[in-house]
């Protein structure tokens, strides 16, 4: 029973850990499928976490936090588009600029606003009668069923009691699939990532498609950041994204730029994080695996995949290449 309980706990943590990765990886999917390399997910998560926590603190409403977080992330995404699409800037450099700018601005402005070393105040505070954090959603009868063996663990512990954003993340996966593979916008977006010149000659504005793609990217990355600051921790602290944007990028590659497989990659990486958090290591086949190895496993796996040792990850063809009308 103990083993069962700890598995439930790990799976429960897996869902929590995977949520921001799923949002961010889907965000990256929209941008990369449109041909824009996105190493800027990290910065977009961070800026939305900061804006989300700040707005939630000032308004007292987590939903206002979500709105503000998404707006901030969209602004950064549009800056990303301005650099990479309008001015044909290098995608990698633009992404780095956004990450570094986000890291600096959130800390400097945060310190100016709240004078707490870059942190926002806690979003739940008795003294201020403030509760601006998302509330967990408890499923009907969850409490009643909690003590039922097996079912209680799965239903009450694993499935019930998460923040609404967790459920939204998993809903977003089929939704994004539908948008990318069943709508006109998705068709055009995927075409843009493969051959922008063909898209242009088909009478579609590459610029418009890529701006829109980054707009959606910004919205989704906003969910990831707000989840971290307004749901998971109820506070912003500098650099709280802690590499999640890069891990989401790894998951996107590991999932071969497809929604379902990307979600599975996020769950895998979330599970590894959960295992690493729970123990000082794991015993696998009688060997003690150091916790640092478990932590590094998502990156190692992605490198192994990129090396073509387990399947092949084929990126959109036009990714990373600014679209310039060539002189005939």
């Amino acid at each position: 029973m103990d083993a069962f309980n700890s598995i439930i706990l790990i799976l429960d943590a897996t869902l929590r850990n995977a949520t921001p990765l799923i949002f961010a990886a889907l965000a990256g999917m929209f941008s990369e499928r449109a041909g824009i390399v996105n190493i800027a997910l990290e910065g977009k998560i961070l800026i939305s976490a900061f804006a989300g926590a700040s707005a939630a603190y000032y308004t007292g409403s987590p939903w206002m936090g979500l709105l503000a977080g998404m707006m901030a992330s969209v602004m950064f995404a549009q800056l990303h588009a301005f650099a990479t699409v309008t001015h044909n800037g290098d995608h990698v450099v633009s992404g780095l600029a956004i990450n570094i700018l986000a890291a600096g601005l959130t800390a400097a402005v945060g310190n100016y606003w709240f004078s707490q070393g870059g942190n926002t105040p806690n979003l739940v505070s008795r003294a201020d009668e403030l509760n601006a954090r998302f509330e967990p959603i408890v499923f009907p009868f969850a409490e009643a069923l909690a003590d039922v063996p097996i079912i209680g663990g799965i239903y009450s512990e694993l499935l019930s009691g998460h923040y609404i954003l967790v459920y939204l993340a998993f809903l977003a996966v089929p939704l994004c699939w539908f948008v990318l593979f069943r709508t006109r916008f998705g068709l055009r977006l995927r075409a843009t990532g493969e051959n922008p010149q063909a898209v242009d000659t088909a009478g579609i504005s590459v610029t418009k498609v890529r701006y829109l793609a980054l707009l959606v990217c910004g919205l989704l990355a906003g969910f990831a950041g707000v989840y971290l600051a307004v749901a998971l921790t109820a506070q912003f602290s500098p650099n709280m994204s802690a590499g999640k944007g890069y891990m989401a990028l790894a998951a996107l590659i590991f999932g071969k730029w497809r929604p379902k497989t990307t979600m599975l990659a996020c769950l895998l990486f979330g599970a590894l994080q959960a295992i690493a958090d729970r123990s000082q290591g794991a015993i696998i086949l009688g060997f003690e695996v150091p916790v640092q190895l478990v932590e590094a496993l998502p990156y190692i796996l992605t490198v192994v995949l990129l090396g073509g040792f387990i399947g092949r990850a084929v990126a959109p063809k036009a990714i990373g290449k600014p679209y310039v009308k060539e002189r005939a």
Binding site: A97, I98, I100, A103, G104
Partner: peptide
């Protein structure tokens, strides 16, 4: 001011000298 204002400056230089 927060020491990480330096990071903002670096970010702006990368943005304007690199990305833009």
């Amino acid at each position: 001011v927060d020491a990480r204002i330096v990071v903002v400056l670096q970010g702006l230089v990368i943005l304007f000298s690199g990305a833009l």
